[in-house]
Design a protein around this nucleic acid. Structure first.
Length: 787
DNA sequence: CAACCTCGAGTTCA
DNA sequence: CTCGAGGTTG
């Protein structure tokens, strides 16, 4: 008697596989990723192999897959369509090759190797050279007659070409069944989805579903509009000719008959040969115009194939070597939240470890509460994970039929898990924020981490864990405190952090306290004292002030002391700074605590090397009219601001006026009232005077002449790919020195794109938009010329 | 005011 | 890399 647990597991697997089959083949609505399906089938196969009494007469392992939908007549395949065994690792391929070496006696058996296309397997029947019938694989023994739909696929010849007989092959046979794959090229898939989106049709989930769905259209006219293609890869029934003795010979013959055969087909010998092919195709995978999910190795000699024979319906002389899956299913263990530098609370999932695209994934971001609600992810759910853009894991969807009982929808916590402050979500905003600000240790830690980061103060060796300890043990309250720490402080912090986390430091083994890293760190902190204005402004971590905005502020205003004293409306004179960013800067500078931190940093010896006068391009914007327009005064349009400035040429005079004088100056009644009310508020009048004074100071500080224009002034440049001769940062600095603005995304405003090796989507976009592309040589030549 | 183009912020793993 | 949202422009 089989073990009871195994019996139950086998029954469960049968049910899961049947459900998946039904959804895939009958409902055209796949619920399981392929890899997951394959694994279930494999697990069931292994259980049955270990104990054959577990195999029921209806076990899914007994058929190759699929159920006729009933919409099309059924066709019996004269020669059954095979399925292939799968290998997921080099080790499994090695066993496969070893077995063939053992059983054939060949040292280095020759394989015909080809990509495994991700489409739909079909069989085409030609009689006397004429296409008479086409069918899907179905369960391998019989499939659906989709002749009318297949006739619309242009890659499928309706009549075979006579290759001239003789040397090219055996000529036109009386009966020829060709097996191959119908697939949808990526470009066609994307074009179709763009069309579907624009016309309210349901987009296709992926190219494979696109191919499968298109072939089962009842109306061939619909199929005809779908961009389908075809590759032939094997034979079924053949009558009236002698077929070539090798698989590679068959493919060459088919090609001669006018059937499309993949140009990537090759011969490879032995384990090394096939693995080399696997790696080469894997590298080219992303650049192919269609999806593949692995490669197939077939023993080339038909004679040797016959010696090896079949197991069930899978040949023992062929195997599919699959690429790592890009989608996988796993189970959600917990949903947690992170608190970022700005207090943004972002939910993420902790999952059971799962291999996706070659790495083990355990966590993925859920971005925000809306995203969680959209997906309806719950603890305990089975979810499908994908690596988006090749790197970052992403939860695609949950598998609803696998949800356990008793789950509840996830909700954003009401209080910050770190500091207990209330979590608030502003009207119309997507992000929820911890209101703790500086009280929140999480925000302090992230703020310090940002301060130390490479693009800010560039303090190497100050990692998150150490910062966490510094904050937790109260060694550091603000960023300025970093400059007061010595080697022994860091060593002590690490010791206490290790102690708390129960990690054993290596020093215990060596018996000597390691301090070299701490010395390096102290030196890095000391080095960071010497910095630039833009790095310093960026390092402060002001909301909405990133690298680019910090650079603009530094370039236009030129001096930290000046910037610290600038009233917020004046920030709008800097290009790319609008109301929101200007107010954010003002808010930051208004906090005495923030000003104290800047003072403390300067007192600790931070020096800004590149102070300079403000940009002369500011001049024309430094008027009273512009200032009034920037202050956000109710009902005061730019035109009315101009009228006021014409009538009352300075801010002090304005403050002396009565309401009716504004009417005389040309303001409508309501605007005059609103303006007078605005002025009478000390919280407005004070800053207005201060801003006017700062305008005067700026005007006085402006240099006479414009700086000489660089050769790339006003040009926006994008760098992509890897450069041989320098890092991206270095290239960026060099281009900026010549006046260019280096940006991250390509648009039609981009001057040119510098493309290094392995350039990806940005290069594609540049080509698409007709933007000029420079290779590295051209960049170097240009830099050399303008050094 | 809509349609862009950019920027900022958060993010994963080896 | 991707989202959301700020800024500019026609």
């Amino acid at each position: 008697m089989p073990d009871n647990a195994q019996q139950q597991r086998a029954a469960e697997l049968r049910r899961l596989i049947d459900d998946a089959n039904h959804r895939y083949h009958v409902l055209d609505d796949p619920a399981l990723p392929d890899a997951e399906y394959d694994r279930l089938l494999r697990e069931l196969g292994e259980l049955e192999a270990a104990d054959p009494s577990l195999q029921t007469p209806d076990s899914p392992t007994l058929r190759v897959g699929g159920v006729p939908s009933g919409k099309f007549p059924t066709v019996r395949h004269a020669v059954p369509m095979l399925s292939l065994g799968n290998a997921f690792s080099d080790g499994e391929v090695s066993e496969f090759v070893a077995r063939i070496v053992r059983e054939t006696g060949e040292d280095a058996p020759v394989f015909s190797v080809e990509p495994k296309f991700d489409g739909l397997a079909i069989s085409l029947r030609y009689e006397d050279g004429l296409f008479v019938r086409g069918a899907t694989r179905g369960d391998g023994a019989s499939g659906e007659d989709v002749t009318a739909n297949l006739r619309t696929v242009k890659a499928i010849p309706l009549r075979l070409r006579d290759a001239g007989g003789g040397s090219a092959g055996p000529g036109i046979p009386k009966v020829l069944e060709v097996r191959g794959e119908v697939y949808m090229p990526r470009a066609g898939f994307e074009a179709y989805n763009a069309w579907a989106l624009a016309h309210g049709a349901k987009p296709l989930a992926n190219p494979r579903n696109g191919a499968a769905g298109s072939l089962r259209q009842l109306d061939p006219a619909i199929t005809a509009k779908r961009p389908l293609a075809f590759f032939a890869y094997s034979l079924g029934e053949v009558e009236g000719v002698r077929v070539p003795a090798t698989h590679s010979g068959v493919l060459a013959w088919l090609r001669g008959l006018g059937l499309p055969v993949s140009p990537l087909v090759e011969c490879a010998s032995g384990l090394d040969g096939v693995l080399d092919y696997y790696r080469r195709i894997g590298e080219a995978r992303d650049t192919l115009p269609y999806d593949i999910d692995g490669v197939v190795y077939k023993l080339d000699s038909h004679e040797l194939q016959a010696d090896l024979g079949f197991v069930s319906r899978a040949p023992r002389w062929a195997i599919a070597h699959k690429f790592p899956a890009q989608e996988e299913a796993t189970i959600v263990e917990a949903i947690e939240v992170n608190v970022g530098r700005t207090g943004a609370v972002t939910p993420w999932v902790l999952m059971q470890p799962v291999h996706v695209g070659g790495v083990t994934v355990t966590r993925a971001t859920l971005h925000n509460a809306d995203q969680v609600a959209r997906l309806d992810v719950r603890v305990g759910d089975s979810v499908i994970v994908r690596r988006a853009g090749d790197v970052i894991p992403e939860v695609l969807r949950v598998i609803p039929e696998r949800r356990p009982d008793g789950t509840t929808p996830w909700g954003m916590p009401e209080r910050c898990p770190v500091c207990g402050s209330e979590i608030v979500r502003e009207e119309g905003e997507v992000v929820a924020r911890c209101s703790g600000e500086l009280v929140c240790p999480a925000q302090r830690v992230q703020g310090l981490f940002h301060f130390a980061s490479r693009r800010a103060m560039d303090i190497e060796g100050l990692g998150e864990r150490l910062i966490q300890a510094l904050v937790d043990f109260d060694q550091v309250k603000s960023i300025a405190d970093l400059y007061g720490l010595g080697v022994e402080d860091f060593v002590e912090m690490k010791r206490r952090a290790d102690e708390r986390d129960g990690t054993t430091p290596e020093t215990v083994k060596s018996g000597k306290v390691a301090t070299k890293w701490a010395e390096n760190l102290v030196a890095a902190i000391a080095r960071s004292r010497e910095t630039t204005l833009e790095r310093f402004l960026f390092a402060l971590g002001i909301e909405h002030v990133g690298e680019s905005t910090a650079k603009a502020l530094a370039a236009w205003l030129g001096d930290l002391d000046r910037i610290r004293r600038t009233p917020w409306p004046l920030f709008k004179r800097v290009p790319d700074i609008g109301d929101e960013v200007a107010r954010s800067l003002g808010h930051f500078l208004d906090q005495p605590g923030n000003q104290a931190v800047i003072d403390a940093l300067l007192a600790a010896g931070v020096r800004i090397a590149d102070a300079h006068p403000p940009s002369p391009k500011l001049r024309e914007g430094l008027t009273l009219a512009q200032l009034l327009a920037d202050c956000g005064i109710p009902k005061l349009t730019p035109l009315r601001a101009k009228q006021l400035a014409d009538a009352f040429p300075d801010a002090a005079t304005l403050l002396d006026q009565e309401r009716h004088n504004f009417v005389i100056a040309g303001l409508p009644d309501d605007a005059a009232t609103a303006f007078a009310a605005w002025l009478s508020d000390e919280a407005n009048a004070g800053p207005l005077l201060a801003a006017a004074a700062m305008q005067a100071e700026l005007l006085a500080a402006l240099p006479e002449d414009e700086a000489a224009a660089g050769p790339l002034d006003g040009m926006t440049v994008v760098i992509t790919g890897t450069l041989d001769s320098m890092g991206r940062d270095e290239a960026k600095a060099k281009l900026e020195a010549l006046g260019a603005k280096v940006s991250g995304s390509v648009s039609k405003k981009t001057g040119f794109v510098v493309a290094g090796a392995e350039a990806g989507s940005k290069l594609a976009r540049a080509t698409e938009l007709g933007v000029e592309v420079w290779d590295e040589a051209r960049l170097l030549a240009f830099l050399g010329e303008h050094a």
